[in-house]
Every structure is written in C-alpha cells, then in structure tokens.
C-alpha cells in the first residue's frame, strides 16, 4: 500500500501548505515511503471489533457555564502585537478573494 509517488508528495505538500524545492520532493518521496512502510507493520495485527482509543483520561464532556470570564491579566492588545502584520486592533492579511 505505501507506494508514495512524487505526485503524492506534491499533493500532500499543497494540502499542508508547505512549499518544497525539487530536491526536497525527491528526498521526501523516499523518506515518507520508508516511514510509511515501517508503520504499515500494524497491518499484521487483527483489530476487528477493537474500539479506537482517542484519549486515555476517561474524562468526557468537560463543561463550564457559558459565560465569558477574564483569565488573561495582560493587555489584549499585546496579542494583536504578536502578529507580524497588524494595524491598530486588527491583524492584517493578504486579500483572501484575490486572484483565482
């Protein structure tokens, strides 16, 4: 099953929003192939009817009342300042609807 092609790598990189050079594509095609071959050893195990484990605490649906409560003691503006591009209280981004 884990036959990773160069086209697969290009497709995954696009989904993951990572730009790869031609060299990196070649290298990753090999590396991802061998990692996926390694993890595919799980197919040796019969897991028919086994429930998946997503977390181990046993906690379920931890609720709090639906009321806003302050937890951050600092200046909320500092959070905006952390953005590489910002203007006043807004985070700046490139146009979303531009181009294609």
């Amino acid at each position: 099953m884990p036959d990773i092609t160069r086209e697969d790598v290009e497709h995954i990189a696009k989904l993951a929003r990572i730009k790869l050079t031609e060299e990196e594509k070649t290298k990753l095609t090999g590396e991802l192939g061998s990692i996926l071959t390694y993890v595919s050893k799980l197919n040796e195990i019969d897991t028919t009817g086994v429930e998946p484990t997503a977390q181990v605490t046993g906690l379920e649906n931890v609720f709090r009342s639906d009321q806003a409560a302050p937890w951050y003691e600092g200046n909320p503006h500092d959070l905006v300042e952390a953005a590489p591009e910002h203007d006043g209280q807004y985070v700046k981004v490139k146009g979303v609807m531009e181009g294609k």
Binding site: R17, P84, V93
Partner: peptide, 20 residues
Amino acid sequence: IRYGYASQGDNLLEVYEKSR
C-alpha cells in the same frame, strides 16, 4: 499570520507556504 515568522508573498497562499 498570527505570530511567529512571516515570509513575504504575493498572495495569502504564498505567505502560508513560504512562511511554513
């Protein structure tokens, strides 16, 4: 966009891809 290293790009997708 929100924090950390940002690369310049012509459009939003390019900013994501290059920064990452």
